[in-house]
Simulated assay, not measured.
Amino acid sequence: YRMRLTLQDFYEQANPKAAAEFLADWCEMVLEAGLEPMKKVARTLMEHADGVLHWFWSGFSNGLLEGINSLIQAAKAKARGYRTTRNLLNIAYLIAGKLDFALPVR
């Protein structure tokens, strides 16, 4: 649990260079600790280090996409299937687009 909490400090690093050093140090610490599930996380982070560190330059994450996917999955479950793929895509656009169909009040 302490390893997980320590990894959250990654986002507090001042710059990409400090973040790269932090990530390398964290992965080394975890690999030496010997907990296999955490070692798997460390190996995955090392394999994708460029993408993880890219967050410092872009500031983007996939959180927005995950949120939209969650809305679409809920719509699929609620409808229990659509007749065609086209209908599903139309519903996805309607949900993700957050369109307002209220009539204007005079």
Rank of each mutant, 00 (worst) to 15 (best):
M3C: 09
P104I: 04
N90P: 00
A19M: 00
E36M: 08
H48P: 00
K40C: 03
P104T: 08
Y82I: 13
Q13P: 02
T6H: 14
L45M: 09
Y11R: 08
G34V: 11
K40L: 06
A96C: 04
N62P: 05
K40A: 13
P37I: 10
R2E: 12
N90R: 15
E47A: 13
S61M: 06
N90Q: 13
I68Q: 15
M3K: 07
E36G: 00
W26M: 01
A19D: 01
F22Q: 03
D100L: 06
G59D: 02
D50C: 00
S58R: 02
L35A: 12
I72W: 10
L35N: 14
K76Q: 15
L5N: 15
Y11L: 03
E32K: 15
E66H: 09
E21R: 08
G63E: 08
G67Q: 04
L64F: 03
L99F: 10
F10P: 03
E21S: 07
T6E: 06
Y82F: 15
N69A: 10
V30C: 05
V52S: 01
N69L: 08
G51S: 02
G51D: 00
L5D: 14
A74T: 15
L53Y: 05
R83W: 08
Y82E: 13
R86T: 13
C27A: 14
D25Y: 04
Y82C: 13
L65C: 15
I68T: 08
Y93S: 05
W26C: 02
S70Y: 07
A14V: 05
E36C: 00
L103Y: 08
K98Q: 04
M38N: 10
L23E: 01
M46S: 11
P37K: 09
W55Q: 02
F60V: 06
M29R: 13
T84S: 15
A92F: 07
G51K: 01
H48N: 14
D9H: 11
A96N: 04
T44I: 03
